[in-house]
Amino acid sequence: MPRQHGSVPAADVPDDVVAELCTVLFSLLSRRDRRLRAEQYLRGLLTTPGRKSIRNIAAQLGGAAVEQSLHHFISSSAWDWRPLRIALAGYLEHTAAPQAWVVRPIHIPKAGKHSVGVDQQFAPHLGQVFRGQQALGVWLASPELSAPVNWRMVLPEPWINDPERREQAEVPERAGTESAEECAVSAAVQMAQEWSIPRRPVLLDLRRGGISAAANRLTGSGVPFLARISPSCRVTAADPALPGHRAGSLPAQRILELVKGMRAPVSWRDAAHQNATRTTLAAAVPVVLPGPLGGRPRQLLLMGEWADPAQPPSALWVTGMARLPVASLLRIAKLDGRVEEDFARIGDRAGLRDFVGRSFRGWHRHMTLASVAHTAIALGVPE
């Protein structure tokens, strides 16, 4: 995705929005110097043109002395970023009325080899291999706006299995090998279990697999979910009265084609086109996913959307939220469009791909403050 630095001018962010975020969030930092550095870094993210590296932020704010203090604050200091993330989510709950948690991958190209997590990696939504970091962000999303509140880095095996690399980047002992799909589930489950905010439906992409394991873990943790799946994902129609039930396991797309007579029009808001109202067809049927070896199969709802009634379904999802109407489920699914639009409009402007450094903790602190900057822009500069 091309970088879009400067797509939202910093001068457009009202100071009262920034000041309120500083008061609400940075009061959690116990030391006055850390509160000052946090506000300094946030304002630097919002005003520095181009890449939001510590060096560039310091050049904008005051030079070498500022660079040294900000570098220590981000990479070497001992403050915990997690309470700030929880507080940011709570703030958005009160100000933005989010309807879902949307898990979105972010790919950060990097040429070097010393920054934590850098490796040759495959980016599914780009369809290509790149060199850099791969992470998952959890965004609180409503039809009007979205902002990231939690981050989890996908650590390739060379970073997990190399003690010297782990030590140099200060990778915690608890961090192990996880696929991108496992990372997405872990980030959502952590929020549901440890954060004192209302649980919202989790929207995530499982088109590369891992559906049964993800459904089991999310359901076992009490997390409602809506997972996008591949048309070739095999499921079984759960209702004996439905076409295809006797055929057993079939590709999900085939099951939906057999029940297309059940389709109904659903209106939803298109974030990519200034929230214009769109109408597409959707249908949902109960299906059974194959269970783990020796385990019980899990019954879910399979939903499909047709952008063109004469073509196969354009998108497919499974969900455990079987009691929700199809229209409500599709509108939740469409919130990923809100996240995509806001990431394109604001993400690079807030510095979400700009951390320069080796430290695992430094990356997390930068991403936390860049998420606050993103929130400030989203709240202060409506579309």
Rank of each mutant, 00 (worst) to 15 (best):
C22A: 15
S53V: 10
R152M: 08
P292N: 07
L330Q: 05
W195D: 11
E167D: 12
W159D: 02
T319L: 02
M1Y: 13
P309S: 14
F73E: 01
D354M: 08
Q128C: 15
R217G: 01
A38L: 07
T219G: 12
L250E: 12
G117Y: 07
R358G: 08
A87K: 13
P49A: 09
A175G: 05
Q60H: 14
D15A: 15
A333F: 03
K52I: 09
G337S: 05
R263E: 11
H245K: 03
A241S: 14
A89G: 14
V171C: 00
R361D: 11
H94P: 01
G351R: 05
V8L: 01
G90I: 06
W139C: 06
P172L: 09
E167P: 06
A87T: 06
P172D: 05
A147D: 04
A238S: 02
G320S: 15
L226R: 00
S142E: 06
P313K: 10
F122H: 11
V18D: 00
R349M: 14
D348Q: 11
F355Y: 15
K260T: 13
L92P: 01
L21K: 08
F355R: 07
I332N: 02
A276F: 08
R358D: 12
S75F: 03
L289R: 04
M262N: 11
G320T: 09
D80G: 06
W139V: 01
P325T: 07
V129P: 13
R104N: 04
A213F: 03
D342P: 00
S230P: 03
V116R: 00
P251T: 10
T279R: 10
S75L: 00
R55L: 13
W151M: 04
A307M: 12
G50K: 07
E383R: 13
L369A: 03
V259L: 05
W81A: 15
A241V: 10
R353V: 05
E144C: 03
E67L: 07
R85P: 00
P292Y: 00
V24S: 15
A135R: 07
T23P: 07
M262H: 12
R82V: 12
V372T: 08
